[in-house]
Amino acid sequence: MYRDIIGQEIRYKGHNGVEKNAYFSKPIGPGPFPAVVFIHHVPGWNEVCIETVRRFAHHGFMAISHNLYAEYGEGDADDIGARARAEGGVSDEQMLGDTAGAMAFLKAQKESNGKVGVMGYCSGGRQAFLSACRLKFDAVVDCWGGRVMVKDKSALNAKQPVAPIDYAKDLSCPILGLFGNDDKEPDPDQVNKTEEILKSLGKTYEFHRYDGAGHAFFDWSRPSYRVEQAMDGWKKTFAFFGKHLA
């Protein structure tokens, strides 16, 4: 456990080289440290994201959470999230450009060991899965990523034109999946089908399913929080990243 850490808002180059803001944290020390990109979910770049980044630093990782809504201005995270939603949200293309920039920022740090993982909750889990297929990460943790599989193809649109599962053959790294059995999106059937596809493609994966948990069971700010399942999920996350980002 690293008690001494640095946490600060930084600037990095996102999609198309546009400079944007992100929150970055790292242990104080010479390293080398592995690193994690944490992708925020649709409701916004909020306090939970910032705390998650600092949590990784406490556990010996450099971590960054990039603000996918930077172009929507400054303000309370929920207000900016609402504004982004009202204007149609960010495209997968922009998300991938921003995430690639966040990864590059981490690799450029002098304490980097050269390994970078990616993680997200909910829509961020979907985006983490997609990023691990379209970019070159070393490990991915998908926490209950909804819409990785798309039941109704009419739900695809110009901003999200392809279901992430359709890129599964290009998955660049081992994947850890954490899911609640009471979740509706993804539901247990979707989780099973995703696992079957990864298995058939010969991918390295670990899927863990929790009884008594639904969606967002890591989120301490919501009634969906489940302390035992969340703590076990964090234990598995640190072990997984510790193994694959060493």
């Binding site: 649709v42 939603r85 967002a216 919501r222 009634p223 969906s224």
Partner: peptide, 13 residues
């Protein structure tokens, strides 16, 4: 703007 999704404040999923 109307949507049925995760809220910020009300204690519901």
């Amino acid at each position: 703007v109307i949507y049925y999704d995760h809220p910020t404040h009300i204690p519901l999923d």
